[in-house]
Design a protein around this nucleic acid. Structure first.
Lengths: 325, 325
DNA sequence: CTGAAAGCGCTTACAG
DNA sequence: CTGAAAGCGCTTACAG
């Protein structure tokens, strides 16, 4: 009947107008299921988020949403909840659903979980891809800023800095940051030490652990938080132990927010616009799905924002000079 | 062929086992599109988030994800980006997609945008519903805590408190909170004043605006932030103006986080477990879709968590007593 | 330019 | 207990 009418086809303008009017009046909505069955396209893109509890993924997800919706794609979110099994199950659902593309907001918990999608011909944006991948792009974008952190701390006389994470086996981004800091600390002759917080978020416990490291002989004089959500935990711990920032210990964290800036002293951060990353990847995805051979947009590098939370290492020359004034 | 085999039906155990093995080996995934076309069920639930930029929705979304995924539903997220037009378009996509249910994380920008879904027989969880709706449930759950804020401030000698929001015309939750605070302030004889921050997040500008209110004759001696993300903005403003918390001005905010607790002085908050709300609603949705006539789980009321950011009103009796010590 | 038919992959009745 | 057929709503060729 009104087959070509709703799309394009050889139809008189008047006829088309009338058909469209009727369709609107009757609230006609073409069935996505039927269309997908026929066209083998679903107009759905999936997003794999390793952990929705981690706020860094939210701007990313938001950007994906914005771009996808603007191009008339719907978005299916998979929250892997840090669990390979959950990830697996949800990705299988996406496979059955036949999403046109899957965007990785971070590395998959288990890479094999992506096989089903790949086999089904789904466009999976990840490392093996052109660099449009958030994963590799992020690693590259963050490196210079990590180095800048090391340079700044070294210049302030710090000799030993601590890298704070929640687990010994950190995720991919934790590993990446650890390596970048190591690469930055070595040429400055700074030691980098790994500090693992225990899972109970008890401020006293955290404080005691940090106290032991900051107030021993040959102390750690600066802490770098592996992730944004770790910063308040560390700060509470320091507060609970009565350790002054930055006089006794400097603090830097990955990831920025209004809270980090509002804190007293304001927190120094390494910040990357993940919003931009999400936007770029999704744009490439939409282009590719439309048949274009689009390359990735370059991602702006992360910035090191120095604020009041870092200062001279206690006992260093810089610190002594400062006190004399 | 293997029709009933993959589901239930009169089939020998051995046959079934062999068919399932073969299906697994060939990575057979039934097509969701074809199934949906036939069954008129998509096994997809939509979530309408008024603004993904607002972090209060994240725990909610997360909970929906968790419950839905566990029940083998996929989740389609709509970020309305605070815009009725964006909302409209995305919801029309969901209608075409034929989602089985739509969960409202907050009020729709335009209620008419939901008509299409309702007409299509989609289960829409909102106010008109049994109270499983996050909207109404939230309003009820927050009221006692809002009252507790007023009681605490009045007991500390505060006579005039400011309600800080980003716009004059706040969203539904802002309105709700304003009304709850009014209802709590009136019996205590406290005045409630509305303070609107200008959109530019410039700390100096915010500071100047707050300074004008806090340091005038008949000053506002306590600020209540309408939303969690407003708190750091207010705190930076106060810091920039050199206003001491809580000595010159007490601060309370809606919404809790590790950051709020880590701040010095620690922020007093009204906190509601939105995670729990998301969990409850989704649970009801899944039950209903399975044909059960499930009622809403009751939502635990919000709590007022008093921390160091509130203190006696400057110049009040309580404040004088404190100073003498 | 327009109508009628085939077929996407599933499920659900119905016939053997 | 098992096989063959009808039909969900669309799109895309093909016949008139």
């Amino acid at each position: 009947v009104s087959r070509a009418l709703s799309g394009r086809g050889p139809v008189g303008t008047e006829t088309r107008r009338r058909v469209e009017a009727a369709a609107h009046r009757l609230h006609y909505q073409p069935s996505a299921a039927a269309r997908s069955l026929r066209t083998e396209r679903t107009l759905i893109v999936g997003v794999l988020v390793p952990d929705l509890g981690n706020p860094v993924f939210v701007p990313f997800l938001r950007a994906v949403q914005r771009v996808a919706q603007a191009s008339d794609y719907a978005v299916m979110v998979v929250d892997a909840q840090r669990s390979p099994a959950v990830e697996r199950r949800a990705l299988d659902r996406l496979t059955a659903q036949g999403v046109d593309a899957l965007i990785l907001a971070g590395p998959a918990r288990d890479d094999a979980n992506l096989d089903g999608l790949r086999r089904a011909g789904c466009l999976v944006m990840d490392d093996t891809d052109t660099g449009a991948s958030p994963r590799r792009a992020l690693a590259l974008a963050e490196r210079p800023a990590s180095r800048a952190v090391c340079d700044a701390l070294a210049a302030l006389g710090h000799r030993r800095i601590g890298f704070v994470s929640r687990r010994a086996a950190t995720g991919e981004s934790g590993r990446r940051r650890w390596q970048a800091l190591r690469a930055g600390a070595a040429p400055q002759g700074m030691a980098l030490e790994r500090l693992v917080l225990s899972d109970g978020d008890d401020p006293e416990g955290t404080g005691a652990a940090l106290d032991a490291v900051v107030r021993r002989a040959d102390p750690v004089t600066a802490l770098v938080c592996a992730a944004h959500d770790l910063a308040p935990v560390v700060l509470r711990g320091l507060g609970s132990a009565g350790i002054e920032v930055p006089d006794e210990c400097s603090v830097v964290t990955y990831g920025d927010s209004d809270w980090a800036a509002a804190f007293r002293p304001a927190l120094s951060v390494v910040t990357l616009d993940l919003d931009e990353a999400g936007l770029a990847v999704t744009d490439v995805v939409v282009r590719r799905l439309a048949g274009e051979r689009s390359a990735a947009a370059p991602l702006a590098p992360a910035r090191f924002v120095r604020r009041a939370s870092i200062g001279p290492a206690p006992g260093s020359v810089a610190s002594a000079t400062r006190r004399e004034r």
